[in-house]
Amino acid sequence: MDFLTDPYAVFLVRWFHVLSGIMWIGLLWYFNFVQIPNMPKIPDEQKPAISKVIAPAALFWFRWAALATIVFGLLQAWQLGYLGPALALGVGSKSAAHMSIGFGMWFGLIMALNVWFVIWPNQQKALGIVEVPAEDKPAAARIAMLASRTNTMLSIPMSYSMVAVHLT
């Protein structure tokens, strides 16, 4: 397992974490800044282009990028020796740096769980990827939208804590 803590492996994992993170948060912001606010402006007969083609493709890359970001992020924390202390928010190690990155890790974990266990199941119902009665679709779409908004909100402190560690 020594190769995993080789400096070049540490760098590669960080790069993969950033790449998958850009894919994830880029699509999250696409949903919240572009798709959701503009859906009401699209004529009904054209809406399926988004709901049947664009959104399912975006959701595919979105949810797998979320998983990849978490896997590479946790691996990076382990490589650098602070996985446990950071998840404990620096309480045991009395470290502001562990607390800072720990906040970011917890926000990221909550966001990824939101993606896989709230947004994705509800989007499947809302977009008709799984069959549900038509009257259940608006509630599913609303839950997915609010969970997506929650993640947009959390992406702000999450990214801050990720890049602010050197200040502590």
């Binding site: 919240n32 800044f33 606010p37 620096g90 009395k94 470290s95 502001a96 607390m99 800072s100 906040f103 939208m145 609010l146 908004r149 929650t150 947009t152 909100m153 959390l154 992406s155 702000i156 402190p157 801050y160 804590s161 602010a164 502590t168």
Partner: peptide
Amino acid sequence: MKNPLESLQNTILLGVAITIVMALIVKYTF
């Protein structure tokens, strides 16, 4: 009452507020 997260603007304001609180906690805890 309307959920504040229904508005994108409020979502961003809440995100910034959480960030400020978090930054202060990190700065002054240890």
